[in-house]
Design a binder for these strands. Structure first.
Lengths: 340, 340
DNA sequence: CTGTTAGCGCCTTCAG
DNA sequence: CTGAAGGCGCTAACAG
């Protein structure tokens, strides 16, 4: 036997198979292979099947970097920047975004700013560098200059959970005002004349809107807004508890308390339980196991995922409908739920 | 005045400025501009400053697609596939991954499989197409064939919260066995002779490991494993409550109950509270406001973020140290915490 | 229905 | 220290 003549072969593909490898195996041009793999029209069924079979045999995976470079865009990838993924509010929001864009065959790249403005800018810039199709951002601060479309090669941006400041952007917000208004109104309807408010820092949109809702409900009922009954400095459950103790120690204590978020509500609950006071309690934010508390509680409930879905929806409209209308603002509704 | 001769200009850059625009403005070659922007050595300080200034003035953003195509990799982007981001366990895990890779200047692309195997495969393939540097996957099923490195052009994969099946992959797992063992042992040390177990489907790794821990603790104390005291069919709080009722209705009821997850523990809590039974309660999974319950509770606590951080760490080692050692398996420890 | 040509923007290689 | 060529893998635009 003679040694068989070693045929001339391209060096063993040490790296991934390319479109060209697929085309060679299917005995067509790269163009035809490309069309077949994209399911573009104008390829005969027989040819297409040959290409698909070749691709499958080689385990071909399209190189998205090359594709994106050629197309000049990322083709279906959007970015999401949240402040704190460990907070269920934001993780559910993220899931809402994910679900909404997945329905359209798109994907999400996630960034967590940790409420650090510098990190947020870095993430946004990175996303812009990657030529993503758009961004949903939960901003960490009131400074939104870096989110202006002009700074981002026209990449559309939608804000979530916070309204735009000095820049024209779509935004999806929770209806903090109406939710609080409704809940406080409800307490007043139950006969309460002195309703206390455990609030959030007024500098935050959420904080000021919820306080505004509280004030509106009081004004509507011609009740005075007693500064002694509002407190805005609580940072956690424990400080909220202390604030509640102070309220209950007043000469003319409140007969009802509204907590502007679940930390405040829970702090109030503990103070009330500890002294077995008879005070009605309501608050913004539902929480798991709220029905386990040993006293009636009314909460302002909402779906954080809805914020994400709506934001994604607005963004997708901007991405396809070009050029789009003026900045829009969507309010996600809340509803009152009572646990006994 | 004569009409000034229109100089020949490149058409107005309707799209984003490129490296070439920066180079022209800085009056250097694209190569020098590239080096300066990458902070590569071999560029004089003066030249570099000129390039940086030009880039800043143009609002230049590097095109990562072009860069990635040239480099043949994504340069610092990893993928994360989780089953359900709405579950705090996975969102905290995701945050751990994010934090760990962010420390190394890397980024995460997130996918949510919704426990759908088809969607998981799709996500993994998409990530492979994008030439990500690696993947952390929380698998939705026991079928891990599509995660094999050979299927993924050698892209490294690390599993989280579930061990690999028929494929060699690194994995980071919670120490379900030891956590349960310790907790049940603790109940036995308190004098309990009949300890019930509200379990999970035995087909899941977590379910079987926790049950194994329960059995080990009983065996160690020479206590019999009474099948009447184990139940594995609870799907939610309500069914766990029914299962507990059944346990408490036995002729020889348990004096202590261990819930294999917080749904089971909570269902048991409700049943016990409802009939004011005197039964000790312990369970796997901490939960927020666990201290609000009106009876003593001991929980097996752990940090889901640690799973993510460790997984990211293993992955990063695989990405840089090439070729790496054999598959590794890491156990994340748990600790016992009592609430009174 | 299929193929050829050209180039997206960047960086590696090799010369000055 | 700086620059000139060339090509990564893909697809739009134009033939045939």
């Amino acid at each position: 036997m003679t040694v068989s003549e070693p045929r001339r072969l391209r060096p063993v593909a040490s790296s991934a198979p390319t479109l060209r490898d697929v085309a060679e195996l299917a005995e067509v041009s790269t163009m035809t292979a490309s069309r077949a793999l994209r399911d573009d029209r104008g390829v005969s069924a027989a040819t297409r099947d040959r290409v698909l079979a070749a691709a499958a045999r080689l385990g071909y995976l399209r190189n998205e970097a090359a594709r994106n470079l050629r197309l000049g865009r990322s083709d279906g990838l959007i970015g999401l920047v949240v402040t704190n993924l460990a907070n269920p509010f934001y993780s559910q929001l993220a899931l809402g975004v994910e679900a909404a864009v997945a329905e359209r065959g798109m994907r999400v790249m996630l960034g967590n700013s940790g409420e650090d403005p510098a990190r947020e800018r870095q993430l946004v810039q990175d996303f812009a560098s990657r030529r993503l199709d758009g961004l949903v951002v939960v901003p960490a601060t009131h400074d939104h200059a870096h989110l202006s479309p002009t700074r981002l090669r026209g990449m559309p941006v939608v804000l979530a959970a916070s309204p735009p400041v000095k820049v024209d952007l779509d935004a999806v917000l929770l209806d903090d005002f109406a939710g609080t208004w409704e809940a406080v109104r409800n307490l007043i309807a139950d006969g309460h004349r002195r309703v206390a408010f455990l609030g959030l820092p007024a500098a935050s949109w959420t904080g000021s809107e919820r306080y505004r809702g509280y004030c509106a409900a009081l004004e509507e009922a011609d009740l005075p807004i007693d500064p002694q009954l509002s407190s805005h400095r609580q940072r956690d459950v424990e400080t909220a508890r202390h604030a509640t103790d102070a309220l209950l120690d007043l000469d003319d204590p409140p007969s009802a308390i509204f907590g502007a978020n679940n930390r405040n509500t829970l702090g109030a609950y503990r103070a009330i339980r500890a002294r077995a006071a008879t005070v009605a309690l309501a608050g913004f934010d539902d929480f798991e196991f709220a029905d386990l508390l040993e006293m009636p509680l009314t909460v302002v409930q909402y779906d954080p995922g809805e914020l994400g879905r709506r934001a994604a929806q607005l963004l997708c409209e901007r991405i396809v409908d070009d050029p789009p209308a003026a900045p829009r603002r969507l309010l996600v509704p809340t509803r009152l739920v009572s646990y006994y």
